[in-house]
Amino acid sequence: MSHVAHSTNSKPAAEPGVKITTSATIFLLAGLALLVVAPLFFYPIFLMKLLCFALFACAFNLLLGYTGLLSFGHATFFGGAAYFTAHAAKVWGWTPELAVLLGVVGAALLGLVMGFVAIRRQGIYFAMITLALSQMFFFFCLQAGFTQGEDGIQQVPRGYLLGFIDLSVSTNMYYFVLGVFVIGLVIIWRFINSPFGMILKSIRENEARATSLGYSVAHYKLGAFVMSAALAGLAGGVKSLVFQFATLTDVAWQMSGEVILMTLLGGIGTLIGPIFGAGLVVTLQNYLATSDFPVTIITGVVFMVCVLLFRRGIIGEFYASRVGRWLGFEHRH
């Protein structure tokens, strides 16, 4: 009976995915083409920062938008991977791809431990547990020897990708970051459109019904948590190579707040929304950093306006608009 119920429910859920993919593919390919030529018009470091935080926001959205779990501790995975990658590259002399891989594995293990504890609770209790565990990891990084305390790990060498591509050249580093970003985005897209992703959406919509159909909700939540942590770690590891340092800022609770802000601004439960939100926040931070305007106040005002006028997020509202529906988009959150 549960198998029949699952089969009849999964088919309608897959149809909007096909509808969205056709239109979204066009926009994504156009966006990718713009990113390929973007270094000709914009500062590469700014673009690399944008891509790293866009991947971070997409990883967070995998947990919030598609599973319905609000985590206040994702800075643990982002910053933890940054520390692991920086230490491996600088102290152990690992190549950049292996150092980043270590960061991803380390973030996934942290996600496994944190998720195992946190998924036992729901709602605000889940969020508070992730925040508490994240603060514990912050103080660990403050005291641990390999993190070098408040100084952080500085002057991290970018090294040679695959042994022969010099990442100290900004153009090479940019296309490496772009490649990682695209790979991460493809993984997320495949994940949310897989049977596993469909089950996560059913858990988000009605956890009790998913349980009654025989699914182990806790296992699926933990799987989503670990996947989100690993992808956040991928963003953090690459970020440490881009800026050549890893500091306590990467694991602070403010970093978790930033990624929540990015995701909400763009639109939770959408693939493109977190990318747009990250771009908006990073752009504001970059261009207001040298001005007399307080960045946090301006960002807060933008967030307030978006919450009041765009309840689904900017991209979410676009999907729900006539133009978005005409183009074949459908906001599924």
Rank of each mutant, 00 (worst) to 15 (best):
L98E: 06
L288R: 00
L98T: 09
M114S: 08
Y83D: 10
G313T: 10
F139I: 12
G237E: 00
L50V: 11
Y319D: 07
F42G: 05
R209G: 02
R332E: 09
G257F: 05
F181I: 07
L131R: 04
L142I: 14
S240W: 04
T85G: 11
R204Q: 12
S23N: 11
A108M: 09
I203D: 00
T8Y: 09
L265I: 14
K90H: 11
L133D: 01
V305G: 07
S194H: 15
G266I: 00
G149A: 14
P12F: 05
I129C: 06
L308E: 12
L110W: 01
F318V: 06
R190Q: 09
L309V: 15
P16I: 05
C306N: 09
L200H: 03
F56P: 01
F276A: 13
F196N: 02
M304Q: 06
Y83M: 10
A320W: 03
I272R: 00
T147K: 02
F77K: 01
L200W: 05
F42L: 12
T171I: 14
L133Q: 04
V323N: 01
I129M: 04
L280T: 04
G80W: 07
L28A: 15
M304W: 00
L309M: 14
T263F: 03
C306Q: 03
L261Q: 01
T95C: 12
G159N: 00
L162K: 13
L308Q: 14
F137N: 00
V4Y: 13
